[in-house]
Structures are given as C-alpha cells and as structure tokens.
C-alpha cells in the first residue's frame, strides 16, 4: 500500500470512529480544536520534519488567516472565500520575510521567526481601527449546517464543524504525505540531511527552504481561518508567542518526521488541558515540561516511538 493511501485510510478511520467516544456535544468542540491544531502542526511537520527548520513565529501566520476571516467580510468578501484570501496573504508574507531570514541557521532563524510572530501580535493589538485592538473582534458567522441539510441530515453546529474540520485535516495530511514522497519533498529531505550534498545535486537550497516555509504558513493560515469561523471571535492571542510554542511543542511531541505525529501531538496537548482544567494555571509549565521530557526520552517524538514498538512486536 502506498504511504499516501495508508495515511488516508488510517486518519479517515480514526476521525470517523473518534465520535463513538464522545459522550456529549462538548467533546465535538474539543475535537474541532484538536483538528484545527492538527492542521497547524501538519504544516510544521513540513517545515521542521521535512526541511529541518525551526519557526517560533507560526502563530503569526495562524493569526493572518484568523484576521483575514474576521476583517475581510466587512469589505464584501464572503467568509468562505476569506480562507483562500488569508492563505494567499500568508503565503505572500512568508515569501517576503522568508527570503532574508531563511539564510539564517539554527537558533538565529528561530529568533528571527520569533520576531515575526511578535510583530504580527503587535500590529493586531495596536491597529484597533481595523482589528478591534486587544479586545479582538467578532467574526461573521457562516451556516455550517447548510451542506448537511442539503443532504437531508439534521446536525448540531459543533458536530457539523467536527466533520468539516475532519475533511480539512484529511486533505491536509494527504497533501503533506504526497509531498513527502514526491520530487519536491525528496529535495526537502535532502536539504534537511545535508545541504552541501543537496546543492551538489543541483537542488537550490534557499528556494527549497522557502517553499517549505510558505507551505507551512498556508497550513497555519487555513487553521487560523477555521478557528475564527468556529469561535466566531478572534483576539491577538492567536498570534501570541505561547501559541507558537504550543504548535512547536505539539510537533515535537508527536514526532516531526511523520504526519501521524501531527495528529497525536495535537490530540494530547489540546485535550489534556481541557480534561485537567484544575491545572489551567500551569498549562504553560506543562508545555515546557513535555518539551524537555520529549527531548530527553524520545527525541524522535511519539509517532516514531510507537511505530518502533509495533515493528519490534512483529519481529
């Protein structure tokens, strides 16, 4: 079975079966958040896992998508279309800032992306005439039940959102898996492992990194748009530094080298705080602790560790 078909079947099956474990509509809401984070993290898998770059500013791209969806309907663009406009905007911004900063390596790049995220946060907080400032703004709602009603299915809003986001995640994961096994993805992995060797084969290292950066920005932006539509409210917190860290932690915990890791990382780190609301105060500490433990105990992340366990079992 090709890796793409396998990813499609496994992820689809998981998302189809998950609702069997949902005792109430509230769980569908958590499910939606997990799926939206999965989308962001899948983009980060392309960036960190495929081409090996760290970004601590991806919440910036997430916020670009979220605010595109919040702001643009006032200018006559239908809410659904704002997802596309936001994605194109995020891609352009990524191309513009990526060109100079992707020449940096390791922690220099991390710091530069961190700066980008803060910049977006600052603009969103200060330009109140457009963004509503620190209080955020209301997002025009869309009728997500309509497509289901067309098919004659009566459905609650949160449940409709779950299925819409599930489709988005399956598409996102299939695209990323296709990429991994394609010429462009191979070039990315080659750059990741040895940029001198990649360049000696004619691979334009800077361009390859930029492509991955843009792709990951688009994933984050689409996730941001979906969250804005789902919550019907956006705040500058979408661009917050801690949100970038969250995306990064999910990626590292799940395992940056595989798209399955994206789902696992997003699932654990989105649902844990919801289950343990008593510890809400310590959420950020938890992210830090998880990051450290993952680095010390299983640098590859959970998904490869689980895969290894299975292959050992087979032997």
């Amino acid at each position: 079975m090709s890796p793409v078909l396998r990813a499609f079947l496994i992820i689809s099956a998981l998302l189809l079966l998950a609702p069997l474990l949902f005792p109430s509509v509230y769980y569908y809401r958590i499910g939606v958040l997990v799926l939206i984070n999965t989308l962001s993290v899948t983009g980060m898998v392309v960036l960190l896992g495929y081409v090996g770059l760290v970004s601590l500013g991806h919440a910036g791209f997430f916020a670009i998508g979220a605010y595109a969806t919040a702001v643009l309907p006032a200018y006559g663009i239908p809410p659904i279309l704002t997802i596309l406009v936001g994605a194109i905007g995020a891609a352009l911004v990524a191309a513009f800032i990526g060109k100079p900063i992707l020449r940096l390596k390791g922690h220099y790049l991390a710091i530069a992306t961190l700066g980008f995220g803060m910049l977006v946060w600052m603009v969103l907080s200060k330009e109140a005439w457009l963004t509503g400032g620190p209080d955020g703004m209301v997002v025009e709602s869309i009728d997500v039940k309509a497509p289901f009603e067309l098919l004659g299915i009566k459905i609650k809003t949160a449940i409709a959102w779950y299925w819409i986001c599930a489709v988005a995640v399956v598409i996102g994961i299939v695209l990323a898996t296709n990429l991994a096994n394609s010429p462009a993805g191979r070039a990315m992995r080659a750059v990741h492992e040895s940029d001198v060797a990649a360049a000696s084969l004619g691979i334009d290292v800077a361009r390859t990194k930029l492509t991955a950066f843009i792709i990951s920005a688009v994933y984050a932006s689409v996730a941001g748009s979906l969250l804005a539509l789902f919550n019907r409210y956006v705040t500058p917190d979408t661009a917050d530094f801690l949100h970038s860290i969250e995306i990064m932690t999910m990626t590292v915990l799940g395992g940056a080298s595989s798209v399955y890791g994206a789902l696992i990382g997003a699932l654990i780190l989105t649902s844990l705080p919801q289950m343990l609301t008593v510890f809400a105060e310590y959420e950020n500490m938890m992210f830090g602790a998880i990051m450290i433990l993952t680095m010390v105990l299983m640098r590859q992340g959970l998904a490869p560790a689980i895969a290894q366990l299975f292959s050992r079992g087979r032997k």
Binding site: V4, V174, L175, A176, N178, L179, S182, P183, A184, G185, R186, A187, R189, A190, A198, L201, G202, I203, T211, I215
Partner: peptide
C-alpha cells in the same frame, strides 16, 4: 540516488502535493 535526479525532474510543488499523474 533519486535525489540525484533532481535536475531531470519537472519541479512543480503543487503537482507534487496533489499527486498529479505528471508528478
């Protein structure tokens, strides 16, 4: 070794992501 074929491959990231026949 396939990475060595880079210059002989038609490079189109979107075609690659959508798994088009050309890719």
């Amino acid at each position: 070794v396939m990475a060595g074929r880079h210059l002989h491959e038609r490079r189109n990231v979107l075609a690659d992501m959508f798994g088009l026949p050309s890719s």
